[in-house]
């Protein structure tokens, strides 16, 4: 997905401006000439300058006929789009319900769904999911003692 540079530039301009605005509220210390806001403000101004330059570049490209947003052929692929969606959904599941449900159920469901969606046979899916889950749990939770959430399986592990 390619957006026109001017949109990117406008976004950066907004980012820089809000950074500068927030930075202007940082505490300053009496007797100290340069406070915590100096460096972020410099970065914010540079971001705004770059944003401006990108807007100019993008508008020139527009005049040459570049569209505001162009979506290439690869992105229209349904299987690919679905897979990318599933990847993000799986990670979001770990973030949102990971503590409650636990790592293992989410890991099993997300891997199996992704493998099935990508067209592997059920037996392959079952084997790959099982092996991966066991190896990952064993090496991280047991060997490296990472406190992966047990969730609903607490007491069973």
């Amino acid at each position: 997905m390619k957006i026109n540079d001017s949109i990117l530039g406008a976004g950066l301009l907004a980012l820089g401006a809000s950074m500068a605005f927030i930075a202007s509220g940082f505490a300053s210390f009496p007797g100290q000439k340069y406070g915590p806001s100096l460096f972020p403000s410099l970065i914010a101004s540079a971001l705004m300058l770059c944003g401006g330059a990108l807007i100019v570049q993008g508008l020139r490209a527009r005049r040459r006929g570049e569209p505001w947003v162009s979506i290439d052929q690869v992105m229209r692929d349904r299987q690919g789009f679905g897979a990318a969606f599933l990847v993000i959904a799986s990670i979001l599941a770990h973030i949102l319900i990971g503590d409650w449900l636990g790592f293992l159920p989410i890991c099993v469901v997300s891997l199996a769904t992704l493998f099935l969606w990508l067209g592997f046979r059920p037996l392959t899916v079952a084997l790959a999911t099982l092996c991966a889950t066991v190896v990952i749990w064993w090496s991280f939770a047991e060997l490296l003692r990472v406190p992966l959430p047990h969730g609903v399986l607490v007491g069973l592990l």
Binding site: A83, S90, H94, F103, S110, L114, L118, I136, L144, V146
Partner: peptide, 21 residues
């Protein structure tokens, strides 16, 4: 690669979790 990418995703999740617990 259909097997690899989901595995890498899971490893990333575990790795990132482990850094902040």
């Amino acid at each position: 690669s259909g097997i690899l990418f989901p595995l890498i995703m899971t490893l990333c999740v575990v790795g990132a979790f482990a850094m902040t617990n």
